[in-house]
């Protein structure tokens, strides 16, 4: 014991204890974490690869207008050709690319909705009879989904921004259609028409129709969240996520609802009704009038 006590009082003893403790912690740490480290390294490699894929897709399809680093481009007069993508977020990318608006074909008053380019087209037919065809289609679809996700992740990595809503947030069955209808009429109908048949805006712009099934709940949510093109942003304080889900419920349930009174005539109001009244109603009656006042053939004239 005497020897230990003597060593304890040596001048270097304190340093030795600290060193020993550090070494012990190091050994313990090394003992507990090596596997985590390896997994993280592997995950990082995969994420980097995905990000690289996103970057490549970006360079190939987007960079010519939006710039090498998503900073946007301007023409000689300083007028923006394409906006900066820093901070637009994954939701915006998902909306623009999945609706086919981006990559844009030719700049006009507004980018029209169109079929997405094959690289991002997740809406491919997969129900083939032949297994090899089905497999190819499923592979293509999976690739398109991955491409879209990678591109979203890449743009989000440039500056954050709103992310893609979850399935829970956009489920029409969880929303209140009656409340959604009220919100829709107050906030959306002035441009999109009362059931979302679309409407004209100033300067050649327009509010696109929302009453076809290819407009997905996710896209509707993203549009409200990010305010694409002429649309204002309805952030989560203006319309809470529940409000947004109610609006989705109203739109989806209304467009799926059959017209109880017969053909809906486009659900655009009295203009198409007037047209039908003249073209169908009055035309048929004029034909009837011509029929009953027609001159009788000579042989029947006696009657």
């Amino acid at each position: 014991m005497k020897r230990f006590t003597a060593w304890r009082r040596r001048p270097w003893a304190g340093y030795a204890v600290v060193l020993a403790a550090l070494a012990a912690i190091g050994v313990l740490y090394a003992g507990f974490t090596p596997q985590n480290d390896r997994a993280e390294a592997a995950g990082n490699a995969q994420a980097a690869e995905d990000l690289q894929n996103g970057r490549q897709l970006y360079n190939k399809n987007c960079a010519s207008c939006h710039g090498q680093n998503g900073e946007g481009t301007k023409d000689a007069n300083g007028k923006a050709i394409a906006p900066s993508l820093l901070g637009v977020g994954a939701a915006s990318v998902d909306f623009q690319v999945s609706t086919g608006r981006m990559p844009a074909m030719n700049p006009g008053a507004q980018m029209p909705r169109k079929r997405p380019i094959p690289e991002f087209n997740v809406d491919v037919k997969t129900d083939y009879e032949e297994p090899e065809k089905r497999e190819a289609a499923e592979k293509q679809k999976a690739q398109a989904e991955k491409n879209l996700a990678d591109l979203r992740a890449y743009i989000a990595s440039l500056g954050g921004g709103p992310s893609v809503p979850t399935a829970e947030q956009t489920d029409p069955d969880k929303g209140n259609a009656a409340a959604g209808g009220k919100l829709f009429r107050t906030n959306c109908a002035q441009c999109h028409n009362f059931v979302g048949s679309g409407g004209a805006l100033t300067g050649g712009k327009y509010a696109p129709p929302l009453d076809t099934s290819d407009v997905t709940p996710t896209q509707i949510y993203e549009a409200m969240l990010t305010g694409p093109q002429a649309m204002p942003v309805f952030n989560d304080t203006t319309l809470t996520p529940e409000n947004k889900r109610d609006i989705i419920a109203y739109l989806v349930k209304t467009r799926e609802e059959p017209n109880p009174g017969g053909n809906g005539l486009g659900r655009v109001g009295p203009v198409s009704e007037g047209l039908a009244g003249w073209l169908i109603g009055l035309s048929l009656l004029v034909l009837a009038a011509m029929w009953i006042t027609a001159k009788k053939p000579k042989k029947l004239k006696k009657s």
Binding site: K182, T186, C191, N193, G198, G269, V271, E273
Partner: peptide, 18 residues
């Protein structure tokens, strides 16, 4: 489809009868 009247709401394509 039009909903009840609400002074705060308006729809595009609001036309009268022909």
């Amino acid at each position: 489809l039009f909903g009840p009247y609400d002074p705060g709401a308006i729809s595009a394509g609001s036309q009268p009868d022909f």
